[in-house]
Design a protein around this nucleic acid. Structure first.
Length: 487
RNA sequence: CGAGGCGUAGCGCAGCCCGGUAGCGCACCUGCUUUGGGAGCAGGGGGUCAGCGGUUCAAAUCCGCUCGCCUCGACCA
């Protein structure tokens, strides 16, 4: 079922705003994250933060501003970000007494311009130089939750914004092997979180040199496919080798009293995950949130006619809400008299709440409740006690159901082919993942990109080892790689 | 950054071609009736027509520039 990209694009823009997740800020490419969107981000942060702590990482915070000269220390790094850096050049504004216009004070120019961080490798490695003296200081496992700025040419809410929020991990290790293991360990954490919490299936893989992070020796990624057939990088983890250690002269004494450069990783996931969530599970009614990250897991809508009913039904609804809350369920009782039940049904469906309980005078008589599933649209009435008892189980079933549904969709959108013309047709008509052989050269990769618009999203870490011939040149290839058009 | 489209009330849009009183739906306010799938009726409030400049007796309307949004392309972890 190919969905027109235009339709999905319009749907996405409308739904993000109508569901109360975010809106455009007056600054191009920037967004205002609204309370519901922020609550969702907090649900994403919490389990990730726990997973980082559980693996020995510590949170810290580094400055927003980076001296321009820091970026220049690592040649590839500065090349990668030069095109999209915001720069602070003045420290004072001045009001023209005649026109009342405000402008940077020409007399208040900074001696060295400050780059608004596009990522924090350089300023963090500057600090690491002082923190690391001995092998006893390693491994150094640091994470920070922060905003970064990349002056994007084509911004989209959540998916690609000029300013975005993320976590960035930065670690230093005594050996290359250990750093590489760290990069892969984080990739596993990302995979588990995205699949088990966001219910989004991903493919773990390595980036080709042309898609690699500027300054990395190896970039790992988790890639997913969205409902419109476009791929999205949902998280990355980099093995940085000794590139930044050398650029910032970070050495440690090993047990044999020899000086060595340390080995490094960096890794991150961002508010882009919210975009991935919307474009993985949404439908014509709005967004659909997996229970584990839904700010509201269950909404209770009381229904009444008379004032007397409003009180009795309202009281019952509140009672059920309190019971569920004590069970650790995130629940909202929507007793707002401003809106009628039908309005509330639509509103909470738009906002993706996984389960809805509706209770009215009839249910009060029979001690029952109407249960509605957001992701299937199914509706059924249950005895109240049974519903309360079953609810945690239902939430788990929904979580699993969403993942499996997304997995089946991606399977349908994934094509194995050895014929280039077929690949072109598929990419043009429906997008999706294309698993094809590649001869391993940047020239072929570039040619395919220029002719089809698709890039190599990753070389899967768990390839189906299979000898074949490059789909473009016919030269020998040892495994299939994942092609797709990407966001 | 290049090409195209769009910008009129909080939101969605008509009006622009052919210059002359700024409109419709939703939302908002008041009242009554309503409430199990986005309620009905009646009354009411809200606009420097994105901004700046030009043409004209007169500009939402014609012309130029700037900004923003959308699509495609270039670029981008």
């Amino acid at each position: 079922m190919p969905i027109s990209m235009q339709a999905v694009s319009d749907w996405y823009n409308e739904i993000v705003e109508r569901a109360g997740l975010a809106e455009h800020a007056p600054v191009r490419g920037c967004m205002i994250i609204k309370p519901y969107g922020w609550a969702l981000w907090e649900q994403i942060q919490r389990p990730l933060d726990e997973a980082f702590r559980a693996t020995g990482h510590q949170n810290a915070y580094f400055p927003l501003f980076i001296p321009l000269s820091f970026l220049a220390r690592e040649a590839q790094h500065v090349e990668g970000f030069a095109q999209e850096c915001a720069i602070v050049t003045h420290y004072r504004i001045k009001t023209d007494p005649d026109t009342r216009q405000v402008a940077p004070d020409p007399e208040a120019e900074l001696e060295e311009p400050l780059v608004v961080r596009p990522t924090s490798e350089t300023i963090i490695w500057h600090a690491f130089r002082n923190w690391i003296k001995s092998y006893r200081d390693l491994p150094l496992l640091i994470n920070q939750w922060a905003n970064v700025v990349r002056w994007e040419k084509r911004p989209r809410l959540f998916l690609r914004t000029a300013e975005f929020l993320w976590q960035e991990g930065h670690t230093a290790h005594a050996t290359a092997e250990e750093a590489l293991q760290e990069a892969l360990r984080i990739l596993d954490i990302y995979e588990r979180f995205v699949q088990e919490y966001l219910a989004i299936p991903v493919v773990k893989g390595r980036k080709t040199p042309s898609e690699r992070f500027a300054g990395a020796v190896e970039t790992f990624t988790i890639e997913t496919l969205l409902i419109d057939g476009k791929a999205l990088q949902a998280g990355t983890s980099h093995f940085l080798g000794q590139n930044f250690a050398k650029a910032f002269d970070v050495k440690f004494l090993n047990p044999k009293n020899e000086l060595e450069y340390v080995w490094a990783t960096s890794w991150g996931v961002s508010t882009r995950l919210i975009g991935a969530l919307i474009l993985s599970h949404g439908d014509e009614k709005g967004i659909i949130l997996p229970p584990r990250v839904a700010p509201i897991q269950v909404v209770i809508v009381p229904i009444w006619r008379t004032e007397e009913e409003r009180l009795s039904v309202g009281q019952k609804a509140q009672e059920i809400g309190d019971r569920l809350q004590r069970q650790g369920i995130r629940v909202k009782v929507d007793d707002d008299p401003q809106h009628r039940p039908g309005w509330k049904f639509n509103e909470w469906e738009l906002r993706g709440v996984p389960l809805r309980l509706a209770i009215g005078p009839k249910d009060l008589q029979t001690e029952s409740v109407e249960v509605a599933w957001r992701h299937t649209g199914e509706k059924q009435t249950y005895p109240l006690s049974a519903a309360i008892e079953q609810l945690p189980h239902w939430l788990e079933t929904i979580q699993k159901g969403l993942f499996e549904r997304a997995q089946k969709r991606i399977q349908r959108q994934t094509h194995y082919t050895d014929v280039y013309s077929e690949m072109q047709t598929l990419l043009e008509e429906q997008g999706g993942f294309i698993m094809a052989h590649w001869d391993g050269t940047p020239e072929t990769e570039l040619a395919i990109k220029q002719e089809t618009g698709a890039t190599i999203r990753c070389i899967p870490l768990e390839p189906s080892e299979e000898k074949g011939r490059c789909i473009y040149t016919g030269r020998p290839s040892s495994c299939r790689v994942l092609f797709a058009k990407a966001y």
